[in-house]
Design a protein around this nucleic acid. Sequence first.
DNA 1: AAGACATCCAACCGCATAAGG
DNA 2: CCCTTATGCGGTTGGATGTCT
Length: 221
Amino acid sequence: MGRIPCCEKDNVKRGQWTPEEDNKLLSYITQHGTRNWRLIPKNAGLQRCGKSCRLRWTNYLRPDLKHGEFTDAEEQTIIKLHSVVGNRWSVIAAQLPGRTDNDVKNHWNTKLKKKLSGMGIDPATEFRYEGTASGYVLGGDGDQGTSMWSHHSMYSGSSGTEGGRPALQEKGNDSVGSSGGDEEAEDGKEGGKGASDMSGLFGSDCVLWDLPDELTNHMCD
DNA sequence: AAGACATCCAACCGCATAAGG
DNA sequence: CCCTTATGCGGTTGGATGTCT
């Protein structure tokens, strides 16, 4: 079925962004915000698709982004949250200030998956089979002393979104990071994305981890 | 030194859904 | 309420860079 392309591919540039393009986008958004992604490339004088601009902004240009290595604490958070929400990168990223869903996803796929596999943990479930009657436990990472995890993965193994996505209401919140150059820092306004969506996931046997209070509270409510 | 292979990350694609008319 | 459009999300890809042989 003819799905309308997000933009006419003919007059649209693709591939790596140049520093000039970055500058144009950055200065336009700084002045005008991110009201309408369709108009932004046109008004900013960019031969790019709005979608591409949005991605560039959210994943790279946003001033509140961190670009360096993931810290151990961040990795722990990702692993823990992944065991709960599965591949819902935006939910996980919402708990990591300065990180984007793309960042988290890439980091997971390139580093953490291997790390977990190397520890004998199935990255899809974060379970390690101990070979005892006690069954599965969430794997610990030796030097980090994370073996205290003992939680059952309530929502995991959904390596694809198709069919695996629970009926969480994720939308309806303000669009993340799209409120413009003068936007409030996304991380500060939790209650929005992610956290609020988790409430339905956690029933009676909620286990507290050392997650951010905000999230934990939502989980265990 | 050079080619092959592996890894990483930015960007793209297409679907789902919210928002607006 | 239905239809169209815009946006957000997750999966995937491709190119740049690093490492090995």
